[in-house]
Design a protein around this nucleic acid. Sequence first.
DNA 1: GTCCTGATCCTCT
DNA 2: GAGGATCAGGACG
Length: 211
Amino acid sequence: MKILGPSFYKQTTLEIAKNLLGTFLVHDSPNGKTVGKIVETEAYLADDPACHASRGETPRNKMMFDPPGHAYIYFIYGMYFCFNVVTAKKGVGEAVLIRALEPVEGIELMHKRRAKKNKGHFSIHELCNGPAKLVIAMGITKDMNGVDLSKGDLKLLRPSVTPDSDPGSPGRSRIQCGMTEIHTTTRIGIVQGAHLPYRFYFKDNPFISKR
DNA sequence: GTCCTGATCCTCT
DNA sequence: GAGGATCAGGACG
């Protein structure tokens, strides 16, 4: 496994949203380690009315203007948090929302964290199939807003099959996606910019949030 | 299975 | 003061 470095973020936000599919989100917490494979993302661009940063910088969205590879975590609907990867160069507010993960490691811990919020029992497919769910399952907190995802306890990794400097190589696509096809649709739960085809997920993957 | 609602509070207007 | 990049549970069929 290899950390996603600066060269990965030289791509456009839409390319990053697609190429984050198949990479691994890792959190080393005091309670244990959890790992999930990213299977669903949404892109939010600077000139996109749905993007929090589209109307300029505010205290809430200022992390979106950080250099790429940082975390933007925001509070929504009075009780949930969503996790984004900042994607554009410093000063440009763009990000990719991580909408669903396929649990890979620390599945018991994910169950425990999700069960704390509500006493129901979840199938493995329901642990991380939504932006707020995966934040809970991974143990991500608002304190991690703005952290650098190439160092520290919360990291983005991918199989070290191809060099970091060649993120779009055919080799990588084969390894990362296997036979899996990437599906593109409009985004979930927004009104502004609802027609834009900025949602990406692995077709037929059982861990995505919505068909 | 689908649809509706309540929970709950920060953020920007 | 309104609204929001959500979720779970209940009603209904």
